[in-house]
Write a protein that binds this DNA or RNA. Structure first.
Lengths: 168, 168
DNA sequence: CCTATCATGTAATCCGTTACATGATTAT
DNA sequence: ATAATCATGTAACGGATTACATGATAGG
């Protein structure tokens, strides 16, 4: 049994396995794309390596299909559930950094107008996506995803305001 | 002469070297802390390895102090200046992802109230820092840093609004 | 003087990205 | 049938973080 460090990627995998039950890496890929993916994407390769890593430390268990492609299938274990629960219950004061490429350029003297035009377009497109997702969310969905979406929308709006003003 | 890929880290180093002239890694560390650091921090070790990497591809040149500690000193070259300029002139439609740890927890079902309390506090503290930096910025400063700060402030406000509402 | 803290750097590890590959399905 | 795309994985690489270390300087 290995000791591993749990990263955000780990919790995404654990969270999805808890929600969806036994899943293959490819199924996880689909799940990410349709959920957390709107604010936290993962490379598909990570959805093969990360469950493997989690399995090596007992947070998930692995079986293989007997027939056909013999896909690997992962299930969250009690240990995994406990780790997820602990993480979830620990409120964090951590803050992500902005790390916006366009802001870096702005900082180092890029032409604000040209930048702003591209950024307004990109942010508007993303805002539209978010709103589309929100409007198509089934009502019986748990509240977390909707709330996460909501802060995304707020931040997008703030960004659009900023870049629009900058363009003048 | 190596071929290397230029990352955001590379442009931060190049941008600071252009601004400040010949600098040691430690001086770069101080520069980052007092400038871009408010929205994009770097590990101090990167300020030793990254200039090295840039030197291997001719974007910066390296000398050493003759006396005392024999620190390494880096200067941006014409090639470096050109790369920086090209990057700066290329408007980007790239958007950073939110990747906020607290939002991930929210997404996966953490208690919104408890999370919100911690997040409001953290975001308020950061907002205060931003405002302090802004208010102490010398007037003759180039506009980029001030504008970058401004979007940071907007985003913080949006986040605070969101978490405050969530706490009710 | 002694001890924190600042200054300066190197080395190892590891996660995440990129590249490579090939087996199934679907569409035309 | 054949091409295109989806599904499924492995391997290599590299940048970023973490850990380790030691020399200078300042405060008590």
């Amino acid at each position: 049994m290995q000791e591993i460090r749990l990263t955000p990627t780990s919790y995404i995998v654990l969270g999805l396995l808890e929600f969806a039950g036994e899943s293959s890496p490819y199924a996880l890929k689909q799940l990410v794309a349709g959920s957390v993916g709107y604010f936290w994407t993962l490379q598909h390769a990570q959805l093969y390596t990360e469950p493997e890593r989690l399995a090596s430390a007992g947070y998930v268990s692995e079986t293989r299909e007997e027939t056909g492609r013999r896909r690997r299938l992962y299930t969250i274990t009690d240990r995994g559930r406990a780790a997820l629960e602990e993480w979830r219950n620990e409120p964090t004061g951590d803050l992500a950094e902005l790390r916006e490429p366009a802001v870096l350029k702005l900082f180092f003297g890029a032409d604000p107008k040209r930048l702003a035009i591209a950024q307004v377009a990109a942010n508007r497109a993303r805002l539209a996506e978010y709103q589309a997702i929100r409007d198509s969310m089934p009502a019986e969905m748990p509240p977390g995803p909707r709330q996460a979406l909501e802060i995304g929308i707020r931040v997008e709006r703030a960004a659009i305001d900023f870049w629009e003003e900058l363009a003048d």
